[in-house]
Amino acid sequence: MADKLKVTLVKSPIGAVPKHRKTVEALGLKKVNKSVELPNNAATLGMVKQVSYMVKVEEV
């Protein structure tokens, strides 16, 4: 299991559910095609799972 996850926003959250928009913002993603490295823990995985249709995840 990797230590970190690289999360990339691939779809705009404009038309998304407001709760999902806030989740994307909480992950630190502001613009489409921008990436952030986050720790691989239960909290991060839960957030990523909720907005999985908008993000791409890679293990680092």
Rank of each mutant, 00 (worst) to 15 (best):
V60T: 11
L27G: 03
K31M: 11
T8Q: 04
V60A: 12
E25T: 14
N41W: 03
V57F: 02
L9T: 04
V55E: 06
A42L: 12
K11L: 12
K11D: 01
V57T: 10
E37W: 06
P18R: 08
K31Y: 14
N33P: 01
E37H: 10
P13M: 07
E37N: 13
M1G: 14
L9S: 06
V51D: 07
G46L: 03
L38M: 07
H20I: 07
P39I: 06
G28Y: 00
N40V: 01
Q50W: 01
K6E: 13
V36E: 08
K49F: 01
T44C: 05
K30P: 00
S35A: 15
E59H: 05
S35G: 06
L45G: 00
A2E: 05
V48T: 09
E25A: 15
P39S: 13
V24Y: 06
L27P: 04
A16H: 02
K56A: 13
Q50F: 09
V24K: 03
N40E: 04
T8G: 06
A43C: 00
A16D: 08
K4H: 10
G15M: 12
V57L: 05
K34D: 13
V10K: 15
E59W: 00
L29I: 07
V7N: 04
K56R: 15
V51M: 09
M54T: 01
A43E: 09
Y53E: 15
G15T: 10
L5D: 05
T44F: 02
T8W: 00
A16Q: 12
Y53W: 10
E59K: 13
S35E: 11
S52R: 14
V17I: 11
G15S: 12
V24W: 06
K34Y: 10
S12N: 13
V10A: 02
V57Q: 02
V17A: 09
E37I: 08
K6F: 00
M54S: 02
V24T: 05
E37P: 04
N41G: 11
I14A: 15
